[in-house]
Design a protein around this nucleic acid. Structure first.
Lengths: 192, 192
DNA sequence: TCATTTTCTTAAACTAGTTCAAGAGAATTT
DNA sequence: AAATTCTCTTGAACTAGTTTAAGAAAATGA
C-alpha cells in the first residue's frame, strides 16, 4: 500500500521510522472509477495526489471550449492543479481518471504540518518541483521547435506503454494536434 | 547595490542581520556589455544570476539552427540555464545581454553553503521555483491554445515597457513566429 | 449476440503561419 | 554627413495542420 510512495520519496530524502509513520498518518487513500474526475474546473484543488495504480489526464479548456492536455499521470507520478493548490484560486484544469485508479492524497494543511515537523521535506518538494519544471520546459521547447510527427515519436519513446492504454485522441490533445492529423501521421509512419 | 536583491528575498522569507551579511558575502558582482553572453551553449552553467540593471534573453537553438527564445529577464528577475545548473550537464541555452547589464551571482557551492547555514533559504528556492513553474505553465498553455495575435497582445500587457527596449525579432522569437508574421500582426492591429 | 456507442480513418476545402526575395527605414560607425 | 550595417515591411508562393463530414472498425452494454 505505502511502499511505492515511500520508495518514491526515499530516492531523494531519508525518513526516520518516526517520520515515516507521521508521514503515513497524513495520507488519505482514494479510489476513482474510470471517467471520474479527481478535480473539476472551478473547484479549489486541496490535495497533492500520488498515483498507486491507474492513469489520469489533466485537461485545460479554453474559453472557446477547446481542450488541451497538459499532463498524463501514471503509477509513481504526482498530479494536481498546481496553481489552484498553491494559490487557493479555482482550478483551471479538469483531472480525469482514464482507468480505475488507486491514489494517495495529502491536503494543504497536512502538507504544512509535514514541512514543520520534517523540515527536510522542503528539500523533497524543491527537488520534485525542479524535476517537473525541467520536464515542462523540455516539453515547451519541443512543442515550439519540433513538427508534430517528431513529437509523436518522442511521446512513444517517453511513454512506451501508455499508447496501448488510452484512446488516440488523448494523445492528439497532448501533442496539440487534431485526432485526424495524428491519424495521417500514423499512416505515414506505418508505411515506412 | 544589494537593496534590490534583499528586497526580492524579503518578499518571501526574513533574514536576520547576521544571515544578511553572510548571504551578501556569497554574492559576486558581474557586469556585461550589450551582446555579451552570460552563458554559452556547451558551457556548464555554474551560477544563479539576479539582474540589477539591464535585460537579457535566453535562446534555445535547435539542431537545425533555428532559435527559440525561452525567457526574457529584466531588473529584479533571476535567470540561468536551469538544467545545466542543476545537473552539471553542458548548457543547452545561450543567455545574451540585450543591454549593458549589472548582475549579482551565486555559484553552486555557495548556494549549498547558504542552504546549510540558512535552512529557510530552501523555502525561498521552493517558492521561486513554484513561481517560475507557474509562469512556464501559463506560457505553454497559451502557446498551445492562443493564436499569435492574442499572444502578442498578452506579451504587451505582461511586459509593458520591454518592447521599446528590444528589437522586434526577439519578440517574434519569444512568440514562436517569424518576424515577417509579427510585422503583419502589428499592421493589422495598428489599423484597428 | 445484437445494438449502440465510442474510436479511428479518409478525403476535400480551408487557414494560420512560413519562406524567400527585395526594398525601405533606422541606427551606428567612420 | 556619408557609408554601412542592422531592423522592419511587403507581397507572392507555399506547407503544416484544421475543419467538416461521412463511413468503417472496435469496444461496450443489454
Amino acid at each position: 500500500m505505502y511502499e511505492l510512495i515511500l520508495q518514491n520519496i526515499s530516492k531523494h530524502i531519508q525518513f526516520t521510522e518516526e517520520e515515516t509513520s507521521f508521514f503515513i498518518s497524513m495520507l488519505k487513500k482514494r479510489k476513482l472509477r474510470k471517467r471520474q474526475f479527481l478535480v473539476q474546473k472551478g473547484d479549489i484543488c486541496k490535495h497533492e495526489t500520488f498515483v498507486i495504480k491507474g492513469c489520469l489526464r489533466a485537461i485545460y479548456t479554453t474559453p472557446n471550449a477547446q481542450e488541451y492536455m497538459t499532463q498524463f499521470a501514471m503509477e509513481d507520478w504526482w498530479i494536481n492543479d498546481f496553481e489552484s493548490f498553491l494559490t487557493g484560486k479555482p482550478a483551471t484544469l479538469d483531472i480525469e481518471a482514464l482507468e480505475d485508479c488507486t491514489l494517495l492524497q495529502i491536503d494543504y494543511p497536512s502538507l504544512q504540518l509535514i514541512y514543520e515537523r520534517i523540515p527536510k521535506f522542503e528539500r523533497f518538494s524543491r527537488l520534485m518541483l525542479e524535476k517537473s519544471y525541467l520536464s515542462l520546459y523540455k516539453r515547451m521547447v519541443s512543442s515550439m521547435s519540433k513538427p508534430a510527427e517528431e513529437r509523436y515519436q518522442d511521446f512513444l519513446k517517453q511513454y512506451p506503454n501508455l499508447h496501448h492504454r488510452i484512446p488516440q485522441y488523448h494523445i492528439a490533445a497532448y501533442l496539440g494536434i487534431t485526432p485526424e492529423f495524428l491519424s495521417k501521421i500514423r499512416k505515414k509512419l506505418a508505411k515506412q
